[in-house]
């Protein structure tokens, strides 16, 4: 059960997190215009997308999957050949 201290982060909190993460990895997004719908990309759209990705983390975390029967497999289709589930 989640404690009372857990609350959904605000947009502003997520923006700080996103900017910090990019900065940590040496990626400078300040070269983009802050908000310019005519530009190929601006900081506003980039942060909006980033917040969406972060909030989807919750969806993934909440997805209940049996870890004993469902191994992570990056290439599922050829895996059926490697595991001899199709005739060679």
């Amino acid at each position: 059960m989640r404690g009372n201290a857990i609350h959904p982060p605000s947009d502003e909190e997520l923006n700080v997190y996103i900017r910090t993460r990019y900065q940590l990895l040496g990626v400078d997004i300040s070269v983009l215009p802050e908000s310019d719908p005519d530009a190929p990309m601006d900081q506003e759209r980039l942060l909006e997308n980033g917040r969406s990705i972060l909030r989807q983390e919750v969806v993934a975390a909440d997805f209940d999957i049996d870890p004993q029967f469902n191994l992570p497999v990056p290439h599922p289709a050829p895996f059926v050949a490697w595991t001899e589930e199709v005739e060679q």
Binding site: R21, Y22, E57, N70, L71, P72, V73, P74, P76
Partner: peptide, 19 residues
């Protein structure tokens, strides 16, 4: 840079389950 490793693993689990 924003997707956690545990989500990435779960995506691959889900992908195999979907197959």
């Amino acid at each position: 840079m924003l997707q956690s490793a545990d989500t990435y693993v779960k995506v691959q689990q889900a992908r195999m389950l979907l197959l």
